[in-house]
Amino acid sequence: MLLEVNNINVYYGAIHALQGISFNVNEGEIVTLIGANGAGKSTTLRTVSGMIRPRSGSVVYKGEDITMTACEKIVVKGISHVPEGRKIFAPLTVRENLEMGAYTRSDRSEIAASMERVFASFPRLKERINQLGGTLSGGEQQMLATGRGLMSRPALLLLDEPSMGLSPLLVQEIFRIIKEINSQGTSILLVEQNASMALSIASRAYVLETGRIVMEGKASDIANDPKVKSAYLGI
């Protein structure tokens, strides 16, 4: 098992944001967390990547407890977080943004190889290699953020709302690429509001409601569940 989250409790001040969440991600899987606004999806990702600390519970990655490990060391271990709202470095060029993603690595030729792989997945970025990050369109910025996340050569990629603010066509494109990245061997933990898209590419899914997991199972089963259908898929 690649990632195992056991019964974590996270608080924002007095607010009990995650109330005993447990889930796991296996090697080579796409696992998605779906749920409404404020259900705790992003908080879960932030806990896994070490940006916030749980009050109790544990995060185990490749058999090692990383609950209290510093964020920057978690990146070295192979978990890469693509934060919500893209958060690219606007005054840096596309190339420099990608180089920032490889900050924890030092081998220049391997970094160049990783950049080539990113350009293979996102040919659009190669066309705009010397353009400033801030001048890219929303979809291109998302591609850049995802590509930057891949530059640290992660075993597990945490994607937070990759479809936010994108046109339906671009959403399809992004999800096609996510699937492609996964087929090349990177496991993915995906947080999405666009539940139907997420369920269509994921192998397993967890449904979050106000800080608890209320349902889990194979993505196809969840997609066919009448409750999920009415609550999240709008069918």
Binding site: S49, A70, V76, H81, L92, T104
Partner: peptide, 19 residues
Amino acid sequence: RTVMSVREDETAARAMGID
């Protein structure tokens, strides 16, 4: 460049593995 990335966006910088 790490110093500047912290100015630009702390969340993104942390996600890059910057202390």
